[in-house]
């Protein structure tokens, strides 16, 4: 009897695992923009991202979980060290809550490619992706006023678990 129960439990476990699939997708060219001039304090840059799941042949209804696994920000050359004190990256859509997914504070000096710290709690990202468009919002805290227009490029990687 115990043997039967054990085999049943293992079978159920393997069966449920077998049905899940994890797909890794990359958004390598997220252009976060805002019109200057920028003033000391928080300034926000954003881009609307369309049809991510559709473009990767993923049915939104099959999605169980989405996790941001990597976020790298590429600073333009016009940004000198110390101009920006910290970054926060949020995702939001019209029908879901805004979710802070990554940040960095302080920004390491001398680097143009900045890997952001990823949030441990990532509930709700699947809801953000479920609609055809969502917005990536980058908040940058400027240490002083800055006149030149800036565009940040971001490379985002997600793991999408589907059944």
């Amino acid at each position: 009897m115990k043997k039967i129960l054990f085999i049943s439990a293992v079978s159920i476990f393997l069966f449920s695992c077998k049905n899940q699939k994890v797909t890794s997708i990359e958004l390598n060219n997220v252009q976060l923009t805002a019109e200057g001039p920028y003033y000391e304090g928080p300034n926000s840059f954003q881009e609307t991202i369309l049809n991510t799941l559709k473009n990767n042949n993923i049915n939104p209804e099959s999605v169980e979980k989405i996790e941001l696994t990597s976020a790298i920000l590429i600073l333009p050359d016009s940004i000198e060290d110390g101009l920006i004190q910290d970054f926060s990256l949020q995702l939001v859509s019209n029908t879901s809550e805004m979710k802070k997914v990554a940040f960095i504070n302080p920004i390491p000096a001398g680097k143009k490619e900045i890997p952001l710290t990823i949030a441990q709690e990532q509930d709700g990202i699947d809801e953000i992706f479920s609609k055809e468009e969502f917005t990536a919002l980058l908040d940058a805290n400027f240490s002083k006023d800055f006149e030149t227009n800036i565009q940040f490029k971001a490379k985002l990687k997600f793991n999408i678990t589907t059944h």
């Binding site: 928080p42 805004m98 940040f103 504070n105 949030a119 441990q120 908040d139 805290n141």
Partner: peptide, 24 residues
Amino acid sequence: KVDKNNPDASMQNVPLKGYRLLKD
């Protein structure tokens, strides 16, 4: 000042200036 009381330990260094208190 940073968000040192955030229940997500990975977010406890996010600065309060610029923090979105009101959401959605």
